[in-house]
Nucleic acid binder design. Structure first.
Length: 541
RNA sequence: GCCCACGUAGCUCAGCAGGAUAGAGCAACAGUUUCCUAAACUGUAGGUCACAGGUUCGAAUCCUGUCGUGGGCACCA
């Protein structure tokens, strides 16, 4: 429709010279009194033409040759907007289109043939995934879904490191629990992992090895903990319907010499130097503020080196789009890493770094501080048990990733009617219910009389449905999952209003069958949208 | 001190590729059911879009500064 209007204006260039080579922008006005589409074209031309915007608008309208069965009327409004009112008949065809395309409706293949990798979660295996990790997990998976929706072939990847100090502390935590189980009164250090899960792992080891447990190599405790915790993490992700394609172990970068490769390249390019027994990365030469250490005087690399090497593997795996997702606590690390990758000749334009702000957990009106080490946390699994997977997912994507998210456990756990997810799902369930009823009445779906859908509620619903594809593409290209949620909330609201205003059973047969077609179209769009968000579309509630 | 994000109704937040009278949910108040699920719908009330400048025909939206909140500024990741 926008294309049609743009053509109208381009064709008018024959009469009005200044419309040549112009690309008019159309928007849907917030206020319905302002028509179906609106353009600010006249106002943008005031300077060039030195005329009042309303005069220009009236000149343009005079030059437009349009079909009155499509455009009902055109008006000048406010400071100089040109508002287009589309004849009612032109919106109902969307229903046929939706029924036709069904699961494919609203999808584009704009990026067909392109590949993407989305790296997310990437928590080191020191404990169960907590509510704090939840936002990252859900946003990452949803972004991956979104990219798939526009044609990308997407790999979901989890990057972890099982070497560093934290992992040694983890292994030692298990070992000390074993000692305690075997009767030693050794004290458990404050800075070790306090969680119950450590005791469980220790108990399993003691059960298998008895008194010999303490003769085991230190590595065994760490490896066992890592294995059990990872199994747990994968299970948790599964509970959220998240399936990783790959778990990438930082260690492989060492084993395959990737770390040395980077180090050598830096050296040969003169991008590193030695000082105080450490190797420094010359970031100042690349325009950053200060140089940073990449290899400590102990010989161990800092995170920067493996991170750079890791990103290079992403480039070498030939992804067209590389998405990294992490919390704001890591926001300072990525510029160094990108600078390193860029310095080695890779095009960082294809890297999209998404940073989400923190989640503040509220309970009883207070902020809950969480720490994996102190075992003071709420796990995602606990949350799912309380409120279900859909609520958890929805809470994490319903807000812009740039804002701090307040997760009020009391509300999340409370009566479901405070949760907006149910509002969406109820719209879907309601439609299913209607269809069960109309089926019993012998009413069938028919697209023969869609022109009967003329009430306010019906027209608004039709217009909304027509915006689905464009809105999806916009949210996806901007990496804004919350916009999909907003769209679906609007659609659900319009449907609920339609439900209250327009009855199906009891209406004239032609009208009833057209309304069934509309309802099914809404259901299809709702289902497609919920699918992208990874939410279920229940038939009954 | 420096860097990033945020500041919109009592609360939680949309809106921000500039656009017309700034929206929703919750909370408050008043209504709607012999009728396809009331997990719904309708209405009332509630605003100095943190503050101050600037750009613009036009600013919640862009720019600068101030204040406030969160996160970061390691030879931790």
């Amino acid at each position: 429709m926008k294309e049609y209007l743009a053509d109208l204006i381009r064709n008018a260039a024959a009469e009005l010279e200044y419309l040549k080579d112009i690309n008019p922008v159309f928007s849907v006005p917030n206020n319905e009194d302002h028509g179906d589409f609106s353009t600010n074209l006249a106002m943008t031309l005031t300077k060039k033409l030195k005329k009042s915007p309303r005069d220009i608008a009236s000149e343009i309208i005079g030059a437009l040759k349009y079909d009155e069965s499509v455009v009902e009327k055109i008006e000048i409004a406010g400071p100089g907007f040109i508002n287009f009112y589309i004849a009612a008949d032109n919106f109902s065809s969307i229903v046929t289109d939706i029924l036709d395309k069904d699961k494919e409706f609203g999808r584009t293949y704009k990026y067909k043939g392109k590949t993407a990798i989305v790296e997310f979660v990437s928590a080191n295996p020191t404990g169960p995934l907590t509510v704090g990790h939840g936002r990252n997990a859900v946003i990452g998976d949803t972004v991956a879904n979104m990219l798939e929706w526009v044609g990308y072939d997407v790999d979901r990847e989890y990057y972890f490191n099982n070497a560093g100090r934290q992992m040694r502390v983890l292994g030692n935590s298990v070992k000390i629990r074993c000692e305690q189980l075997l009767g030693s009164d050794v004290e458990f250090p404050d800075d070790h992992y306090q969680g119950e899960y450590i005791k469980d792992i220790a108990a399993a080891l003691v059960k298998e090895h008895g008194e010999d447990t303490l003769k085991l190599d230190d590595k065994v405790f760490k490896d066992r903990a890592e294995k059990e915790i990872f199994a747990d993490i994968e299970k948790t992700l599964g509970n959220l319907n998240i399936k990783m394609k790959n778990f990438f172990n930082e260690n492989t970068l060492y084993e395959e010499g990737k770390i040395d490769d980077v180090l050598n390249k830096f050296k040969s390019k003169g991008l590193s130097y030695e000082k105080d027994g450490a190797v420094w990365f010359k970031l100042t030469e690349l325009g950053n503020e200060m140089d940073k250490v990449i290899v400590k005087s102990t010989g161990e690399p800092t995170y920067r080196l493996p991170d750079i090497a890791y990103h290079i593997t992403k480039f070498n795996r030939n992804y067209d789009l590389i998405v990294d997702l992490f919390g704001s606590d890591h926001s300072a690390t990525y510029p160094d890493v990108l600078a390193g990758v860029k310095a080695l000749g890779y095009n960082t334009d294809q890297v999209k770094v998404l940073i989400h702000q923190f989640v503040t957990i509220m309970q009883g009106g207070d902020v809950v501080k969480m720490s994996t080490r102190k075992a003071n946390f709420i796990t995602i699994d606990e949350l799912i048990d309380e409120v279900g997977k859909d609520v958890v997912r929805y809470f994490f994507i319903m807000r812009s990733i740039n804002t701090h998210l307040n997760f009020d456990l009391d509300i999340a756990k409370k009566q479901s009617d405070e949760n907006p997810v149910f509002y969406l799902q109820y719209a879907h369930a309601r439609i299913c219910s209607i269809l069960r009823m109309t089926d019993g009445e012998g009413l069938k779906l028919s697209t023969d009389n869609l022109n009967l859908l003329t009430t306010d509620a019906e027209q608004r619903l039709l217009k909304k449905l027509g915006q689905f594809g464009e809105e999806m593409l916009l949210s996806i290209e901007n990496f804004e999952p919350q916009k999909i949620a907003n769209f679906l909330e609007d659609l659900a609201a319009l449907f609920h209003k339609f439900y209250n205003d327009c009855r199906i059973i009891g209406s004239d047969k032609d009208l009833a069958e057209a309304r069934i077609a509309l309802a099914v179209a809404v259901r299809t769009v709702m289902r497609n949208g919920l699918g992208i968000l990874g939410l279920s579309a229940p038939e009954k509630m």
